[in-house]
Amino acid sequence: MTRYAMAIRTANCVRCMGCVVACRAENDVPEGSSRNWIGQTELRGRFPHVGVDFVPGQCMQCEEPHCARVCPVGATSKDEDGVVRIDRDVCIGCRYCVLACPYDARFANHELGVADKCDFCTDRVRAGREPACVQTCPSRTRVFGDLDDPDSEISTLVASERTHRKKLEAGTEPKIFYIDS
């Protein structure tokens, strides 16, 4: 089996926005929306001992996706490779899934009248390439791979590094692993 996932080395991220623009270019994301983002923590500490972190985010490709659960027409589903995908030919654009995502990773694509979100660049991965955000990243913040392949870089990282996942209490079992440093 294949279970695609991503690890994110937050410490590397410098918020250059390469991933955000690459995603927009690859996936024709309409203006005003974005499939991925780089969050920024509030400034810590007092001048001059201050700190800030940059936290990339996108669809967490949950094992138990709420978005799929609430879809009234079955347009969203988790595929055999562990990626949650939207069938654009089926989606009716009710946006229930957009509201059901604890990560706010979905948006309404007003140009197509459907829900939209990261799908780990399905076509690229099927063509043997990395997702656009992963390949373009200057700081090698992102590692993409198959959790079910014990030899993959991501499996090694998840096994060896201290990682955390976001909003686990939502119960969706996200598959983006943030590497603590």
């Binding site: 009234p72 009716i92 654009g93 229930y96 309404a108 009248g113 459907v114």
Partner: peptide, 26 residues
């Protein structure tokens, strides 16, 4: 009318998604 793709509303009635309140509700 509020749907992103109103012409596809019929899909609501091509399936029953028991986990979706919207499907059951429809």
């Amino acid at each position: 009318f509020d749907l992103g793709s109103p012409m596809r509303f019929w899909r609501l009635f091509s399936t029953v998604q028991w986990t979706s309140p919207m499907s059951v509700g429809s």
